[in-house]
């Protein structure tokens, strides 16, 4: 079995994987990072969203082997130095989660939206950009509000506007 090495949430890791091992399986089963969830098998729900070299991807549709040398950030790595990421804060502040299953993917996707679209997001942009993330509990109402607020907060907390990882 091939060995794959990468940096996950700032830590160098390596693991023996099969060719077919998915990134999400590596994260959940080999590394115990169970915050990244699997909600479908057709690459649609977005519960498994992580950042791969700084870009949001659905980790259920990426082979672990193809991530050799990559830098991965999962929901567990978003908070830094014990401080919640502004997007995490915003989700809590605005009651943007109920059951919480889609939430890690939503938050990771939201941070990626900010990377692509900036900190000043209007409602329409957020709704369009959430196309790859499905939530069954919230009707999206508070998620849209949280992302708007979290994006603005990211600007304040990082003058460059650059999201992490």
């Amino acid at each position: 079995m091939p060995t794959v090495s990468m940096t996950v949430n700032g830590k160098r890791v390596s693991a023996e994987v099969e060719g077919r091992t998915l990134l999400v399986e590596l994260l959940r089963e080999h590394l115990g990072l169970t915050g990244t969830h699997v909600g479908c098998d057709t690459t649609q729900c977005g519960c498994c969203t992580v950042h791969l070299n700084g870009t949001g991807v659905k980790s259920c549709t990426v082979l672990a082997a193809s991530c050799e040398g990559a830098t991965i950030t999962t929901i567990e790595g978003l908070a830094t130095e014990g401080k919640l990421h502004p997007m995490q804060e915003a989700f809590r502040e605005h009651h943007a989660l109920q059951c919480g299953f889609c939430t890690p993917g939503m938050i990771m996707s939201a941070v990626d939206i900010v990377r692509r679209k900036g900190n000043d997001l209007d409602e329409r942009t957020i709704r369009e950009q959430l196309e790859g993330n499905i939530c069954r509990c919230t009707g999206y109402h508070n998620i849209v509000i949280a992302i708007q607020s979290g994006a603005a907060a990211m600007k304040q907390s990082r003058p460059s506007g650059a999201p992490p990882g």
Binding site: R28, L33, T34, G35, T36, H37, V38, T74, I75, E76, L78, A79, L84, Q88, F91, R92, L97, G100, F101, T103, P104, I107
Partner: peptide, 10 residues
């Protein structure tokens, strides 16, 4: 739940 520390069945 926002930090990935929830415990769902899987």
């Amino acid at each position: 739940l926002i930090t990935g520390a929830g415990c769902f069945s899987d």
